[in-house]
Nucleic acid binder design. Sequence first.
RNA 1: GGGUUGUUAGCUCAGUUGGUUUAGAGCAUUACCUUGACAGGGUAGGGGUCACUGGUUCGACUCCAGUACAACCCA
Length: 877
Amino acid sequence: MDIPSKYDPGKAESKWYNYWMEHGFFKSIPDGREPYTIVIPPPNVTGVLHMGHMLNNTIQDVLVRRARMQGKNACWVPGTDHASIATEAKVVAKLKAEGIEKHDLTREEFLGHAWEWTHKHGGIILEQLKRLGVSCDWDRTLFTMDEKRYDSVIKVFVNLFNKGLIYRGVRMVNWDPQAMTAVSDEEVNYTDEKSKLYYVRYKIVGEDGYVMVATTRPETILGDTAVCANPDDERYKHLKGKMVIVPMANREVPFIFDSYVDPEFGTGCLKITPAHDINDYEIGLRYKLPSIDVFNEDGTISERAGLFVGVDRFKAKELAEKELQKRGNLVKVENYNNKIGRSERTNAVIEPRLSLQWFMKMKELSQPALDAVLKGDVQIHPAKFKNLYRHWMENVHDWCISRQLWWGHRIPAWYYDNNEFVVAGNISEALEMARKKSGKPSMNESDLRQDEDVLDTWFSAWLWPITSFDGINDPENADIKYYYPTNDLITAPEILFFWVARMIIAGYEFRGEKPFNNVYLTGLVRDQQRRKMSKSLGNSPEPLDLIKKYGADGVRVGMLLCSPAGNDLLYEDSLPEQGRNFANKIWNAFRLVNSWKVDDNIEQPDSSKVAVKWMDEVMKKSINEIDLNFRKFRISEALMITYKLFWDEFSGWYLEIIKPEYQKSIDRITFDATVAVFDKLLKVIHPFMPFITEEIWQLLLERKDGESLMVTRLPEVKKYNKDLIASFESIKETISAVRTVRKSKDIPNKETLSLLVRSDKDSFDSEFLPVICKLCNLSEVSFVEEKQEGAASFMVGTTEYSIPLGGKLDIEGELAKIQEDLDYNRGFLVNVMKKLANERFVQNAPANVLELERKKKSDAESKIKSLEERMKELKNL
RNA sequence: GGGUUGUUAGCUCAGUUGGUUUAGAGCAUUACCUUGACAGGGUAGGGGUCACUGGUUCGACUCCAGUACAACCCA
């Protein structure tokens, strides 16, 4: 078989993905095995794959594949999120482009368009994910608005309402005037922006004077219902009980005092606009001030303002400035840096606004979820996020769950008469309740009017680990009992509160149990300038192009190598390139092994014999370390160990030792052992690089149809021989040293050398000598007692080696090298001696540390001694 | 403004309860290699007063305090 020297991922990837699907290897049904479960963080149904998804799903797939190969019943549930605001915004924009306005459509018509859009674009992202090799159980694919999930959400709403945990009320909310909906506190991002601070004077009633107020929002002056100062502020004490006149509105409002006001800020005097600022709102409540909402839903000025009616709020600010100037109220304008809240979804400037919304009481609900994380029942990786989580949970606010949108789960509240309402699972139940509650048995469905609003997207997402197994509708079903709680949740830190915390809350509330054991927070993918990757910046590579260019395995390795938990990943092309190179390395190692001809009549060389023995131990050691790192969710570390195991130990050392001479055959024992080692290596690498490992595994030995690497078992964690590995490490050092000699003396590899060991033959461990002979092309190794003249020498540990060079020895160079070595060892010895001369150290340090220091000392001394001898000899030549 | 975390080689990061040689890895870099698995490779190198200043200790990259800078979260 002719195998190309470069691995071509394209063909192998689709071939094996189809093969895995055909054989149902991703499927999971409950059985007697231990389950391993992950629910996917559902991407937006109409979203497109970005680098964050690539990272996130690679990690999940590595964990799932590994668990599967550990003999667990691995189940990874895929799905998509309806993404209320985002999807509705896209549909509105699309309709607008076709000349259709949302408000010209009925709710049903609009939803028709939204579903059409969802069916057309939905799931594309899941198809893209398949290219990455993810092993989800596709038969379980879910959607947050499919029938079962929809029903679950409604049931949960009714349940929480009946428990008194959901209420309806007028509150100050974050209003997105572009989407024309309320958004939760978590959906507001604050940024520093340049704005202006306006100094405006208000006429004092019954006096000639004015009082000056500093504000960033002159357009809301029309909504002022008081002016306020700090009660301790001497400057304003004389205004107690006075009224002032609101500019432009010419309305008299009281001058009040409240300790909220910071006397240092501006003039120390604040205008109070209860309808448009959360703090003003609270002051308004305390002093029973009226509240005048000067804005409409879309951010234009309302009729209540009496001025600038219908003008957009930003334009109104300019007009207000001019008007105040004209009327002589504007004293000065300063530049000012302000924190501006913007909507997560639309980026519109958020307007605090009083409105009637649905809320969920969080304090009581969140207690078990807080305890679970603090006690470690749910572990967050990396642990640094634990503090953040605690802080948020201890200061949790009620959650505004209603959204003034159509795309989503419609709030199951029905109104009748004068805003009386009932909450029920469906309209017929609602009717029955309404009849009872109102005492009007004649009432029928047409007398009921369902709430127009839908629920926050996260109100369905927070149930995801439960609804993935239909645990709300059917709490005792076999799936939920088997798979819940799930094992690991892999997601980005930015949605720790939006999603993760709330899932934990829901888990305890509706299942009485945590939703997952571990939360692994990945970093953000950034570009080289540390900018977040985003479509608008255009700094994000197209994931599918990367897969095409570097192969899925290469991209996976690239993403993983550089993403320690919780740290951001600075993406550059060299990452997948490194992954691709690794795939190529594996490929060529296979080509080498595959090219060997086996001759049953050849005896196994000693060098191969010890190499096989050593390789087994090294493999066990790495498997130990990989396991340890996976337990700590140090996945990039685990990959790095795997990488070095294959590249350095296996390819660099093992294969070089056992490699038969050019065009010669290999013995049976070594060949079989090598194939077995290769087989194990492929298993270890498979979770990281599923495609190339399957491709090679299928070629390595004859396989039957239906066999697959992905359903074999990983080699188990076993004890290993540390001493053997340590001896081989010093052999590596020796070999390196010989190579260095060769190189510095320009001796070609083909020319044989002899190696002299100055050591007692009986006490010297000569097990690995054949390896040195082979890799250094030695003709002989002999043990000597005396120093050799005209030989290059070096030390490994405390053993001295030398290589006779005939006349080629460069005495000057050799002396310089020895001098350098001497300097190092002498300096080192000085440090050790300093320690040992310190009485207090000798008295206080533990025995093992002391012993170690003494050994360091004697080792250094003996090294120095041999170096000095060597130097003396050279000088005498 | 409040909080959290970080600052170790050119870059990205390890460094596990203070002592295992004078700090490690990968990438990048330098020199050499027209070697028969792989130049997407091999071999051998170079590169760090562990941000700064104090303190605790026989001993500090590691613990404590302060300073500077950075990132993130919250208001």
